[in-house]
């Protein structure tokens, strides 16, 4: 359950941004979570309210942009869509696929006041 640490990381990003951009309340937190990031949006959501309690993002709405996974197939020599790390290439069925997208886990934007 490292999602708890990750949400604490989200709070640190929010607090840094609050100092730089001079805001005191966060209404919405938008995260971008890739399908291959190893992060479970459900678990993030579960910890979110708990970690934000008593902070400037107390009660904030959480939105998640789920980006799709992609990888470079060494056999086909092109980028292909993959849903998880051990998926075969949808074109050739092989496993020589190096993930190259959908690994993000970042704070995309904040709605503040």
């Amino acid at each position: 359950m490292h999602e708890m640490s990750l949400v604490e990381g989200v709070l640190q990003v929010i607090e840094d941004s609050a100092r730089a951009n001079h805001f005191s309340r966060v209404k919405t937190v938008c995260l971008e979570i890739g399908a291959l990031s190893g992060v479970e949006p459900e678990a993030i959501s579960f910890c979110f309210d708990l970690v934000m309690k008593g902070t400037l993002a107390d009660g904030a709405r959480l939105e998640i942009i789920a980006t799709e996974g992609q990888g470079w197939c060494h056999t086909c020599g092109q980028t292909v869509a993959v849903r998880q790390r051990h998926d075969p290439c949808p074109l050739c069925g092989g496993y020589q696929v190096q993930p190259n997208g959908g690994m993000e886990m970042k704070v995309k934007e904040l709605e503040v006041e």
Partner: peptide, 20 residues
């Protein structure tokens, strides 16, 4: 789209693990 009429949007684009 959601109600953003009154609020400010800050584009952060920062990795959650940035501090680590």
């Amino acid at each position: 789209a959601h109600d953003t009429a009154q609020a400010r949007i800050i584009r952060v684009e920062r990795d959650i693990l940035a501090k680590n």
